[in-house]
């Protein structure tokens, strides 16, 4: 068998791990900020460690990561800063960890939000996924723990899932390093704009609610034309979200627009 010319390998996306350079905590300058969100105990920290080469402590129990951990990696010539958010089941209640996660995705404006989901408990994990897709339009779903799903003989059609959610879906078993290459590739595609997400948006069943949200969203869009998640903001304002009201009253809301390659550390509200 003839050996492959090296150039072919280098251009093949399957050999991308070779491009991964783990930067650990060296994050002096970065091109993209990536948030890592997901339900508790789905392996966010394991994915974090696989990408950054850090050894953040992992453990098999929910609620282990209580603060944000940050690390970096370099891939395809770009430098990525990765922020591991605390695991939450929802973004709609008021506990500290949910606020940290929610505020970071909203005010920290990561270039990509990687949602780590437990493949064996997809439905419950999608609850959070859908809520995240209401806030941001750049996300990648990492369908982790595929090895366990196989052990439980679950079959998951990731293409249908990807089509329904409107974002890339990557099956992975981060514990043994499977799927990390593809995840990197998808993160890069979404961050650089090669892949444009068309995220699933919730239709607020109750028609009175839908009408109210539309009315307020229209007002918000009229005043802040660059905002993309006006519907979600309208909804949260109607619900009386204190942090968001503060952002509106203080004018912070005007800055919440996606701009490529700019990123202000979101200390506010964290």
């Amino acid at each position: 068998m003839k050996p492959h010319p090296e150039a072919n390998c280098a251009s093949c996306p399957a050999h991308n791990t070779a491009q991964l350079e783990r930067l650990g905590v060296d994050m002096t300058e970065w091109d993209y900020a990536i948030a890592l969100a997901g339900n508790p105990n789905t392996g966010k920290s394991t994915v974090f460690n696989a990408l950054t080469g850090l050894r953040q402590h992992t453990g098999n129990w929910p609620g282990k990561t209580v603060t944000r951990a940050e690390g970096g990696f370099s891939f395809a010539g770009k430098r990525f800063k990765l922020i591991d958010l605390p695991g939450t089941y929802s973004l709609l209640s008021t506990s500290t960890d949910e606020e940290v996660a929610r505020n970071f995705i909203l005010f920290g404006q990561p270039d990509v939000t990687v949602i780590v989901a437990d493949a064996t408990r997809l439905e419950r994990n999608l609850n959070l996924t859908l809520q995240i897709l209401e806030i941001t339009e750049r996300a990648v779903l990492c369908l982790n723990l595929m090895d366990e799903a196989k052990r439980h003989r679950l079959q998951i059609d990731e293409r249908t899932l990807s089509k329904d959610l409107g974002i890339p879906v990557v099956p992975a078993s981060a514990r043994v390093g499977i799927g990390i290459d593809e995840l990197l590739q998808r993160i890069h595609e979404v961050a650089s704009g090669q892949f444009v997400c068309r995220p699933h948006r919730i239709k607020y069943g109750n028609s009175a609610l839908q009408k109210a949200v539309d009315q307020l969203a229209e007002q918000i869009a009229g005043k802040y034309p660059q905002l993309f998640n006006t519907r979600w903001m309208a909804l949260r304002l109607i619900e009386g979200d204190a942090r968001l009201r503060e952002a509106v009253a203080g004018g912070e809301i005007a800055g919440l627009v996606h701009e490529q390659q700019t990123y202000a550390p979101a200390e506010s509200g964290l």
Binding site: G205, A208, E239
Partner: peptide, 27 residues
């Protein structure tokens, strides 16, 4: 005007969507 049913009806919608999407993807 809406009263205090917002949160519940919203959660219900999220759950329904999640259930439908998961049902299509998982065998």
């Amino acid at each position: 005007e809406l009263g205090d049913t917002i949160h519940d009806s919203l959660m219900q919608t999220v759950y329904e969507d999640a259930s439908r999407i998961a049902g299509r993807a998982v065998t």
